[in-house]
Amino acid sequence: MELKKVAQLARLYLSEQEMEEFQKQMKSIFQYFEEIKDIDTKGIKPLVTPTPMEAFFREDEVIQTLSVEEVLQNAPEKSGHLFKVPPVV
């Protein structure tokens, strides 16, 4: 595993100490994970939601839940009623 590449994919800077520490740990953790490869899972459907339950839909109705002030109340930076971020192009 290329730690740097994965960290970039996850948009996460790691400190030097974390880099060193993770580098060592990842190998043994993934080795541990790989124990499952011996189990025969041919034709088994992956399970996501563990409890059997009925799916439901929402009716197409408009309900306003937040005011625009509430939408923006936690914004680190804003301009008018818009969120503001550094240039992205």
Binding site: A10, L12, F22, F33
Partner: peptide
């Protein structure tokens, strides 16, 4: 943008959370 996100998340999350994000991203 990568720098913007990486610094924010790198400083905002603690080590255990980062460790698990790395594990999960790789998986």
């Amino acid at each position: 943008l990568v720098d913007f996100y990486s610094r924010t998340r790198g400083e905002g999350f603690g080590t255990e959370v980062k460790r698990r994000i790395i594990l999960g991203t790789h998986a």
